[in-house]
């Protein structure tokens, strides 16, 4: 039984069929890739699975439970964590606060603790801080802990975002173009970060990428999405040499195989 199972999921925005009859199954410990040209509907698939939009048709079964109809905070608490293509960080919050925030649903001190600074709250906040620092160390951003995240270099911001998603302790991690806008060196570093996270937590990772190179390095299996439909599915090698894929990428600048 797969960890995450999407069946015949479709969605449209007004007249635009953004995703049609999409299927996916993710097994624990596997890294799967989703590639396709801009506007193909990749991010929309993430948004549909995590509950930002409700799919018009289809079902998303995660760990035996239906996700359709659940809100993003619920799907995240259940263990489906994500990052964003445009890296949504909180501009007035420090790096440490970012990581601690992702433990929100695991806090149990309640309103009384929040208002009255009870011993339980102090204990929990202390534990959360220690845990957050561990994650920051893991991603080599602990030296920035008390800085505002907007003051960090781009690569470090990306790693903070990754640490923030992982501290949820997810079963599945969805990464939306983690190397977008990176130089080749930064890209190689990011590939290492993803690999480390995968080994360390034995996660299922579902990775949206624009660059085939990244997919090649990381994924066991790849789907190619064009106009909301999966046209090819297979190993990176099979996909790379498929004429349909080459055709779909014609006219795109950033084809770096």
């Amino acid at each position: 039984m797969p960890l995450l199972h999407v069946t015949d999921m479709s969605h449209n925005f007004g007249g635009l069929q953004a995703v049609s009859k999409y299927n996916l199954s993710l097994d624990p410990g596997q890294i799967t890739g989703l590639i396709g040209p801009n506007g193909a509907g990749k991010t929309t698939i993430f948004n549909l699975m995590t509950g930002i939009y409700r799919p018009a048709q289809g079902s998303v079964i995660f760990d035996g439970e239906e996700l359709v109809g659940k809100k993003p905070n619920q799907t995240a608490s259940m263990g489906l964590a994500r990052t964003f293509q445009e890296m949504k960080l909180w501009r007035h919050m420090t790096v440490l606060e970012h990581i601690k925030m992702a433990r929100y649903s695991k806090l149990s001190y309640g309103l009384l603790g929040a208002f009255l600074d009870t011993p339980k709250r102090r204990r929990e906040e202390r534990y959360t801080t220690e845990l957050a620092m561990e994650y920051l160390q893991m991603f080599a951003v602990d030296q920035f802990a008390d800085q505002l995240v907007v003051n960090l270099p781009y690569g470090a911001q990306r790693r903070v975002e990754m640490a923030r998603a992982l501290v949820i302790e997810p079963k599945v991690l969805l990464l939306d173009e983690p190397t977008v806008g990176m130089t080749p060196d930064e890209m190689m570093a990011m590939i290492e970060v993803v690999r480390t996270a995968h080994e360390r937590f034995n996660l299922a990772i579902f990775l949206i990428e624009h660059r085939l190179r990244v997919v090649h390095e990381l994924c066991q299996r790849v789907q190619v999405l064009v106009f909301g439909q999966v046209i090819v599915e297979g190993t990176p090698n099979e996909v790379q040499n498929n004429p349909k894929v080459i055709e779909a990428y014609i006219g795109e600048q950033e084809v770096d195989f």
Binding site: P72, N73, F84, Y104, S105, R164, I168
Partner: peptide
Amino acid sequence: SAAEAMTV
């Protein structure tokens, strides 16, 4: 939306 994605 980031807050929601982080379980808030």
